[in-house]
């Protein structure tokens, strides 16, 4: 059962990654695409809490780091998505999050995630880029993620809630 749950979570990440790399570039604005993998991690965090989301964030980030055509130093997206999973997971309350909470969480997570990635790049001097360009990418990324939230988050959250092993909540 546990292996099956992990397989389903991995499949969700793989689908998100495939769409992000192969489909959304056709709609991209200056190459900036919605970060579907991040949305999956945020969905997991809101449905399952920080610990599960941090682990999933690490795995998903690793996939983003290693799957072609990635060329940055591996581990940077893993670090960013661990932070995102953990921070977004702390938003989780007893009640189901309202649509407003979900949108705010996605916006904050997208900002934090891309920023952590960009800052790690500045520290490593991986791509040498100016702060204005970085900010533009971060903000357009947030806009994309918020736009796609109504389409992506409800099914993802429902799926992760369904996967919860000891689900007794009404």
């Amino acid at each position: 059962m546990n292996a099956a749950r992990a397989a389903i979570a991995a499949a969700a990440v793989a689908v998100a990654l495939a769409l992000q790399v192969s489909f959304f570039p056709h709609l991209a604005w200056d190459g900036i695409v919605p970060n579907l993998v991040l949305l999956v991690v945020v969905g997991a965090a809101l449905a399952r809490g920080p610990q599960f989301a941090a682990v999933l964030g690490f795995a998903a980030g690793l996939a983003l780091d290693l799957a072609p055509p990635a060329d940055h130093v591996a581990g940077r997206w893993a670090l960013a998505l661990v932070v995102v999973g953990y921070v977004a997971g702390r938003v989780r309350r007893d009640a189901r999050p309202t649509p407003g909470t979900v949108l705010a969480t996605v916006a904050a997570s997208s900002f934090v995630g891309t920023s952590v990635f960009a800052l790690s790049g500045l520290l490593l001097q991986d791509p040498v880029m100016g702060i204005p360009e970085l900010l533009e990418v971060v903000l357009v990324g947030v806009l994309w993620d918020v736009l796609l939230t109504p389409l992506v988050l409800p099914p993802v959250m429902a799926m992760f809630r369904h996967l919860e092993p000891d689900r007794t909540l009404a």
Partner: peptide
């Protein structure tokens, strides 16, 4: 070209 790296990764690579 079957895949384009996102600008969020700050590198321009394609598959």
């Amino acid at each position: 070209v079957v895949g384009l790296g996102p600008s969020q990764s700050f590198s321009s690579t394609v598959t």
